[in-house]
């Protein structure tokens, strides 16, 4: 069972969520502040971080950014609905998903599992390593390189790229991507997709040109290519 780092300042939430997850077999380390959470990163080696955005001291968004500087560990934000601005900023900072509080433990666990789940192996006969222009996508090793240099991708970014590149030139609506990549409901927050696309483009596209790999199809969604 995954090792979860819970960074949450409210004791009752910390205790409740911690209790719920532990009962389901997760190994949970809890931190009260962002600083304490960052300190635990090295020793605890979490496989996933549950991060409250409203923290005293350095806030959740800053914590998120700090973690992303060194690690591509999955990050799920804990937010309240209506904290729209924080959600957008948190997604831009590299979070993979978010959960609206209050939430039942089963909901939290479902999200954790969804983020950690690997995409299914490509359909038979496909090569394990694909070449798309400058990009080299290794589906087995789950790595992506551009111009020979490996690119560090967060889990959601990797999954999105793998999903889109598996069917080049096919258009996916945001709702479809939410369902396949994030395992959200059809009606979930499309900003997850948009923020993830922006982050991905920032890493794989030419900064000065129009996007080559992840293209926007106005009014419908996104597609990979054509190159």
């Amino acid at each position: 069972m995954p090792r979860v780092l819970l960074i949450e300042d409210d004791p009752s939430v910390r205790a409740g969520v911690g209790l719920g997850l532990r009962r389901r077999g997760h190994e949970v380390a809890a931190a009260e502040t962002g600083e304490a959470g960052l300190a635990l990163m090295g020793g605890f080696h979490p496989e996933l971080v549950l991060l409250d955005l409203m923290l005293p001291g350095i806030n959740g968004v800053q914590v998120c950014r700090r973690i992303r500087e060194t690690s591509q560990v999955p990050i799920i934000m804990l937010t309240a609905r209506g904290d729209d601005f924080d959600i957008v900023v948190g997604l831009e900072a590299g979070a993979d998903d978010y959960i609206v509080k209050p939430a039942r433990t089963e909901v939290i666990e479902a999200r954790i599992k969804a983020v950690l789940r690997r995409l299914g192996a490509p359909a038979g006969g496909r090569p394990q390593v694909e070449f798309h222009g400058d990009l080299v996508v290794d589906r087995a090793g789950l790595t992506v390189a551009r111009g020979g240099e490996r690119i560090a991708l967060a889990p959601s970014e990797l999954k999105l790229l793998l999903h889109l590149s598996a069917s080049p030139e096919q258009v996916f609506s945001r709702q479809q991507l939410l369902e396949y990549v994030w395992e959200h409901s059809y009606h979930a927050d499309a900003r997850l997709v948009d923020a993830c696309v922006r982050r991905l483009r920032h890493k794989i596209e030419d900064p000065d040109g129009t996007p080559r790999y992840i293209q926007t199809v106005r009014g419908f969604g996104y597609r990979f290519g054509p190159l």
Binding site: D10, P11, S12, V13, R14, A15, G16, V17, L19, G20, A80, K101, P102, A103, R104, T105, I108
Partner: peptide, 10 residues
């Protein structure tokens, strides 16, 4: 909401 978040989790 905050106390409820804790309660709902358990």
């Amino acid at each position: 909401r905050t106390p409820l978040a804790g309660m709902l989790a358990v």
